[in-house]
Amino acid sequence: MKTVFVTVGTTSFDELIESITSPETVEALKARGYERLVLQVGRGSLLPAAHSCPHIRLQAYRFKDSIAEDLKQADLVISHAGAGSCLEALGAGKSLLVVVNDKLMNNHQLEMARQLHMDSHLLYCTCSTLTQTLRMMDLSVLQPFLPGQPKNFANFLDKALGVQ
């Protein structure tokens, strides 16, 4: 069953939860073949009940110790712009759509999402353009995200410090 996983990390992002469960957006998801929607809503005030979206299988929770399993099962991840969430989703090799909270304009966390978007590792939109983006998006343009290379750091340091 094609699944969308929505994650807001440790923050709250009610506007995203409201947008993603709106009838137009659910319709757009269905049109793309997604049949299941899993929401991690964090500290938000919205925790939609399973039956609140009649046309899609919905499941919502606040926090889990690890979202690794939900990421693994997802075909598309929709995330807030938090660096941790972005890196975890990309690290799991998932197609990622980042929804920017435009009410947090000067948040430095947005820097990385913006850069990863410029490097074609993720798609990027706001709540007001979410439905449109889901309808029009082309996931095939996304470039794979290669893991960082701590070994390069270790080699540099070994040389600099004279470690044998």
Partner: peptide, 15 residues
């Protein structure tokens, strides 16, 4: 020796 690695979150400005 002081070895500092800026977080990957920092793209345009230093912390």
């Amino acid at each position: 020796l002081l070895v500092y690695v800026e977080s990957i979150c920092r793209v345009q400005t230093l912390s």
